[in-house]
Write a protein that binds this DNA or RNA. Structure first.
Lengths: 215, 215, 215, 215
DNA sequence: AATGAATGAGCATTCATTCAT
DNA sequence: GATGAATGAATGCTCATTCAT
């Protein structure tokens, strides 16, 4: 009734399939999703899926790549290396969380799914690495001292990890993006020692009410 | 005739099975692991597995619970709420990372696996929540001001997320536990504004060479 | 109703399966036969087939081997190298044709099937080679002169080829085993030059009525 | 736009397709060959195949017929019923083996393939029958006595069977055509009783060195 | 208490075949 | 005349799960 037996150009079908696949995979997970289900969702026949993507694994890989690419692009595009450090940090955190908030179903779950099967561990790891590198570069850009490269990398890992965790809550609808972002910014900017009520400006590490004073 | 058919007390059998299951699950993942493989590893018959655990899902759930419990217990046991804030932070981070370092195969992979299937999302979320609560309470313990409960919760989420990300690297053997711990402590304690290089003592937020000065 | 859910020892089931498989394969051919069909015929479930034989190919291979073995054994057992040459020839031809006559469905068709898929060409070739060697040895045993080995081999190939062709007719019910055997014996014994009509004893190559006299 | 879409006269296309089909079928076998593969080899689209031949089965049938026809024609053309019997025999054997030797890929394999699927058993049987009739007629032509028709038929079956077996070796490159032909001629001409070193002329059934003396 | 034997149900994958252009 | 796009229908194979012993 809806779609049916339309003759579509290759490129269109590809996206149609990927859209359906991302959707179904993200709901049921990789293993629990059958090619039948994807075909049904895409309103095409199973052979088409195989014709275009070869196998379930490759199809998932294609989903992963597309989503990964979009995500990284979105984050990268929002970074302005000319801004002051803190604003850069704010920018990347907001970008990160916002993207995921706007693409919950697809991204987080795909991301989650992908980590479970060794077959995709590689792809995900690579994708995450790119984000981490981005963040590490940002950290590195904020300083002139030759801090050890490895340290920035490690910090980036922690930051991104924190971001993912918070993002998961965001995507689950548990928390508000802006609140979460603000909190992360403060947390990472001045640490637990100087925290957190102060929204900005006053950076007194000994400000009254700071957690650090007591923690 | 004789071989293999030992009559073991229930409790022993249970652990024997769980040990085998954890091991196989952690290597191959939940879906890629067959009950046959587990039975073989445990050197018992499949019906035994079903007799004791009812289903694959329940068996995995049992693995998850046991490992989760051990992990949380290990971390909790290492926290001393009477220590000064920073030492508490150091303690929990070290405890967290050390445990995972020592139990890589089992824990991280199980953890990873568990997140992929909706069936276990609940259990994992619950387990993580307990850790987060622990951390949140720790944060809360460090202050007297009535900071909003939710903020501590959020911070804890970020902290634990960072911890998990770093732990993954630790368990992969990519980084050294102590180095990672030190870096996290500094990062979280004084934030990016503060200088990570300094190992301790000197907490000057304006110390030369601090990342914060430039980032 | 008939077989059902009996618990049979491994060895029995194996034969039961092989019997069914040989039967179905021989009727429909390798490719046209589905594992479902075999399972149905054997009155067991498909997983059993896989448990016992691993794959369709292996199952067919097992059929092939069993039938091949039986056939070769039957022929070999009937050869008496102490008999006079012509009697040996008669013996092997009769044995060959009789076996096939008595096991039509299974053997010939299997034989035919097997040649079609490259996967089994090897096995069949090997089996045929054993028969050919047997025949070649028989030929060789009848002479003292050092005829070139290769010549006996070649002759054996021709003989066996003729045997297979005739056997196909026998198994198709087109001709009578004894008539066919007699004719082959005469043909091969004295060649086209000799008279095929004579049943025995009189071997006069110039006997009136011999084909050779005129062909 | 330009490439590949040549408008060819029907007859040419038909041969082009058949050539491709024969080639692919002979390499991979009937079942293992997909229409896609044939279309690709013929450098046309699949619908063309269906337009011209209706179905895979019919296409294969067409291949079979063409090759069968060529083969029979080749053999028939080489028979000269006016030659003396033995020369006729020599002629047909040489013709038979030579044709196959020169057309290995196509013929033997097609032949082999065809026998496996019941769908073509008929066609092949018919083709073989024509060869057998040819040979039977030749045998019959060599004699004046009214031997039972059936006996010539039977002998022809054996002869052709032997021929096929030897031909298979020839086509496999295992043996030389001329050697094989010479051996077959001798074998069939004077039988095992009077054999085989003597190339010709001397037909003494008791010639020294003959297998017959001892076999 | 313990297991070898057995299966229902499902899933990825492949083709021969056909429209719509 | 020629084809890219599309599919219905099978089929091999696996696995969680359960009896009968």
């Amino acid at each position: 009734m809806a779609g049916g037996t339309k003759r579509l150009p290759r490129a269109v079908r590809e996206q149609q399939m990927l859209d359906a696949a991302v959707q179904v995979f993200s709901i049921n997970g990789y293993h629990e999703t059958s090619m039948d289900a994807i075909a049904a969702k895409a309103e095409i026949s199973k052979p088409m899926l195989y014709l275009y993507y070869g196998s379930k694994e490759e199809l998932f890989g294609a989903c992963l790549s597309r989503e990964l690419g979009r995500f990284i692009e979105a984050v990268r595009a929002d970074i302005d290396f000319k801004l002051p450090p803190k604003d850069m940090l704010r920018g990347i955190i907001l970008s990160f969380l916002s993207y995921i908030d706007a693409n919950r179903a697809s991204w987080i779950v795909l991301y989650t799914q992908a980590t479970s099967s060794q077959a995709f561990a590689h792809t995900v790891r690579e994708g995450r690495e790119r984000i981490i590198d981005l963040v590490a570069r940002m950290l590195s850009a904020g300083t002139r001292n030759p801090e050890p490269e490895a340290d920035f990398q490690m910090m980036a890992i922690a930051l991104v990890g924190a971001g993912e965790a918070v993002a998961t809550r965001v995507s689950a609808g548990d928390v508000d993006v802006d609140d979460a972002a603000e909190l992360m910014i403060n947390l990472f900017w001045r640490g637990l020692k100087g925290k957190p009520a102060e929204r900005d400006g006053v950076e007194a590490s000994s400000a009254p009410g700071s957690v650090s004073a007591h923690l």
